[in-house]
Simulated assay, not measured.
Amino acid sequence: MTDTTARVALVTGGSGGIGRAVVERLARDGIAVGVHYAGNRARADEAVAAIIEAGGRATAIGGDVADEHAMADAFDTVEREFGGIDVVVNTAGIMVLSPIATLDLDDLDRIHRTNVRGTFVVSQQAARRVRRGGAVVNFSTSITRLRPPAYGAYAASKAAVESMTLVLARELRGKDITVNAVAPGPTATPLFFQGKDQAAIDDLAEATPLERLGTPEDIAEAVAFLAGPARWINGQVLYANGGLA
């Protein structure tokens, strides 16, 4: 018989990078985890196997976050497997760097499909399905404060995420569900390293008062805080960036 008392999470983009750290961190808190992936089933299966080996519960779910039917199916799968959903974490996202003047508009559409529409679609399902006492955690970026050149399209997409996060927190009045966003700073993931030379990486690491890049585990701790004990934090953007901004 399905256990309906344990907490359950669905993490989009949970197969790698920050998402992988998040699913493992939530599993350590005793949360059953749906590990979502977009195209790499093998990486999701690896994450699931690691959680199960450590004594947790997890299952892999595929699908395009921007496809409302695929995401409805993903939520259905997690509910069937674990009895409900208490936590939804949107880590799925893409980044293309280019000056605004030269950005390929097809890349703009791809960024917004995943980062904006994808977050909206998943948040819509979360608003309908997350149980009382639950939490929704979306992902923004500290780039919305730093505003460096070449990040225009990415920053715009994440500013949209912040706005919909704060609106949804107010729309869920009376349901005892918190809605917040985490805004990482420079974090050592494949997405961060993409397109950067070593000098640029070193400069960003030294820019923080802690003089290092963040790790996926650093960001996962912020998510676990918002997903669990942080019941009086709602409608906020938490900047997890080592004091960079």
Rank of each mutant, 00 (worst) to 15 (best):
R131E: 14
R145F: 05
R128L: 10
G133M: 01
R131L: 10
R128C: 06
N138H: 00
R132V: 04
R145L: 12
G133N: 00
V136E: 09
A127Q: 14
L108Y: 05
R145M: 15
R128F: 08
I111D: 04
R129K: 08
R113G: 09
D106M: 04
L146Q: 14
I143M: 02
T141F: 03
A150G: 10
A127E: 04
F120R: 03
V130E: 06
V137A: 15
R113L: 01
I111Y: 06
Y154G: 04
D106G: 12
N138R: 01
R145A: 12
V137N: 15
A126F: 11
F120G: 03
R110N: 14
R128K: 15
R113C: 07
A127Y: 02
T114K: 09
S142F: 07
H112N: 09
G134W: 10
Y154R: 00
D106V: 03
H112W: 09
Y154V: 04
T114C: 13
D109Q: 02
Y151Q: 14
L105G: 02
Q124M: 05
N138V: 12
G133V: 08
G134C: 08
T141I: 06
G134L: 11
A153S: 11
Q124C: 02
A135S: 13
G152P: 04
D109N: 08
F120V: 05
V136D: 12
Y151T: 14
A153G: 08
T119R: 00
V130F: 11
G134S: 12
S123E: 05
P149N: 10
R132N: 12
I111R: 00
G118Y: 09
L105V: 13
P148C: 06
I143L: 03
S142Y: 07
G134P: 10
S142P: 05
N138I: 03
V136R: 00
S142R: 13
T119Y: 00
R131M: 06
G133Q: 06
L108Q: 06
V121Q: 08
